[in-house]
Design a protein around this nucleic acid. Structure first.
Lengths: 211, 211
DNA sequence: TGTACATCAGTGAACGCGCGTTCACTGATGTAC
DNA sequence: TGTACATCAGTGAACGCGCGTTCACTGATGTAC
């Protein structure tokens, strides 16, 4: 990695931590560069202005999340031998375990942070947040549709709503974990929405046969 | 209402709107007083400093929410003739309807906003957020325990976790509604977690008898 | 292999502006006697 | 009922500090010929 790229990456990482702890408006360039050990002009060599920092930080966050999801659910599919219900259930379990293993708990969701400070950002940043939320909803909807094709639900259910519920529970779980300083609540909630999906789609016979 | 009390209330209302739109750090006293039409010194007559504004704003928000919940679930109990499952299901339906009726969608949850800017607040403010979250969790847990006493769940379930799930779904639903500019997603998600509770506790026989 | 030039990754100093906070003061209303 | 005083709900001016941004400059590395 080139020298400049490494510095830029460090700036983004410091900025993300600070934004999740104090918000974008209260995160000053001054403190970012203090921690990074460069001067203010060095910062402006990498980013035209503060909004470009926001954009770059957000893209980095979304990308990391996309890769994590693809990795976890790719491994889940391998483990499930292609069965869609098992893939989804194993994927959610892996997600819960990953969240449980984060030292100090989940640091926070940048999308949620930005949503509570939307006035501070330009249209482009806000569009990235809604596009990536849509894409995560789509991700779970596709998984649920594959499940639905093979497993009739025991209750009528809208798959789009259920897909959104997974993301809502994750975002809400992060907030509750942070507010109560109880990191275990996020994985707990992920496993709970997983239980709902299991209850909806897993045939009662299979449960008894497996037990 | 005395003159000063009305001004103070107006300041808190303006501050809350601004904090939910831009965050506490980016909400300046200057713009609050501009909208309220008083001078900066007038502001400092009502609040010793910015942290006292935060405290007062948060207490006002928590209090309004407590009263809303008490009102909705009080009406629900009347309508349900004391049956705990019906009380909870009707209460959640009333909650969803209330959220659906908010013009322009839910403005945001102050607790969530503060959680994404915790470094900006003193210990007292952070303690209020965690105490009120605990009390809302308790509120749903008590309702669920009353249900559990009369309706055996079709699946083993931890009532504390389920109580937390309701609050997680609400907080996550608010974020998704705000991010995607789709106010209908919040009531949709409340009804979905209501469906989970219904599926868990409502006896299959009763469903058919009622139909 | 040496030279000229371009690009990269910054430095250092200065800017104007808005921010939170303080202080001395004031006119209107309430209260004691 | 009048007077003295206290409290309420502010005004107006000033403060120092930190913020985001700009600008001219620089030493190290890469590239063309």
């Amino acid at each position: 990695m080139a020298k400049g790229t490494a510095t830029r990456e460090r700036l983004l990482e410091i900025a993300e931590r600070s934004v999740l702890a104090k918000g974008f408006g209260a995160t000053s360039i001054e403190e970012i560069i203090a921690e990074a050990g460069i001067t203010k002009s060095g910062f402006f060599y990498h980013f035209r202005d503060k909004n470009e920092l926001a954009r770059a930080m957000l893209l980095r966050y979304v990308d990391a999340n996309d890769r994590l999801f693809a990795d976890l659910f790719g491994r889940a599919r391998d483990l499930a031998d292609g069965d869609p219900l098992h893939t989804l259930l194993i994927g959610l379990k892996l997600l819960a375990e990953t969240m449980a293993d984060l030292p100090g708990g989940h640091p926070g969701c940048l999308i949620a942070s930005i949503c509570y400070q939307e006035r501070l950002f330009d249209r482009e940043v806000r569009e990235i947040t809604s596009r990536s939320t849509d894409s995560w909803n789509e991700f779970f909807r596709r998984h649920l549709e594959a499940v639905f094709a093979q497993y009739p639900p025991r209750d009528p259910v809208d798959l789009e709503q259920l897909a959104r519920m997974v993301n809502c529970v994750v975002d809400g779980g992060i907030i509750m974990s942070k507010t109560l300083h109880r990191p275990e609540l996020l994985p707990e909630q992920i496993l709970l929405v997983r239980n709902y999906i299991k209850l909806l789609f897993q045939p009662a016979v299979a449960v008894r046969a497996a037990a």
